[in-house]
Nucleic acid binder design. Structure first.
Lengths: 124, 124
DNA sequence: ATTACATTTCGATGATTGGCTAAATATAGA
DNA sequence: TCTATATTTAGCCAATCATCGAAATGTAAT
């Protein structure tokens, strides 16, 4: 039961839901991008990411100073993918998620590295 | 997003997961039966049931002094049923859930009404 | 009516959780 | 090596949550 609980608990926070949806949209994001999207302290976001990772929902890869997160293979295969599908369907038209998507597109335009360094994106 | 969160939060507690699985197994249970299974105070169980109900996962019907809960229609139809299926698959072999099932069969043998009154079941 | 009992609501309490800042760690570049 | 930057860890605080006992509510039976 502990494994199941780690997943449901991971998904029982709004900021983590937004993060999962963002990774569904953008495939891969570094911590600073998620931090920008959520508007939280980096330390807080790092904590959220480790909760998602411990639940097995996301995986990380390190590249230089940056750590990139993406949905894990587990999150994309049965049986958990059905839960992710439910999330997708249920949140697709959510106001918050739509706003996040818009914001993410802006972030994506200038690439993760530049974004992290600048803290903003002057339309690269 | 609030609706989704109410569901994930409802499922992010071990006692509520056990309750959902019990209702999956037994179709219908009154509060005192769930109370017996979980070993909690009636007030606590009542609160858990209302959290599950507010999330739309269970429905209730009143019969005399007793209130019977069962999985809601929503919980049995797309898209949420996929989440319930995941729960079923993931928890089917869980030690706690197996023990609960065994206990529930014992409870069921003498019927809800008698069980509630006696607080135990002397093999009716 | 009065009693008995199942359930819910209320109020208090201890545990968990999300948030922050500050400090620690890790890495790239001067 | 020294500095700058991205991330994580540690320590703390406020808010939320699970739990209980007590009181309130609703219902059945005497």
């Amino acid at each position: 039961m502990k494994n199941v609980l780690s997943v449901t608990k991971a998904l029982s926070d709004g900021n983590r839901l937004r993060t999962v949806m963002a990774l569904h949209e953008m495939v891969e994001l570094c911590v600073c991008q998620v931090t920008e999207m959520l508007g939280l302290a980096p330390a807080t976001v790092s904590r959220h990411m480790s909760i998602l990772q411990n639940a097995g929902l996301v995986s990380s890869r390190k590249n230089g100073r940056w750590v990139y997160y993406r949905l894990s293979e587990m999150a994309k295969t049965e049986p958990i993918v059905t839960v992710m599908d439910w999330l997708g369907e249920s949140l697709d038209h959510s106001k918050e998620i739509k706003a996040d998507r818009k914001y993410l597109r802006k972030i994506a335009r200038c690439g993760a590295a530049q974004y992290c360094s600048n803290g903003s994106c002057e339309e690269g």
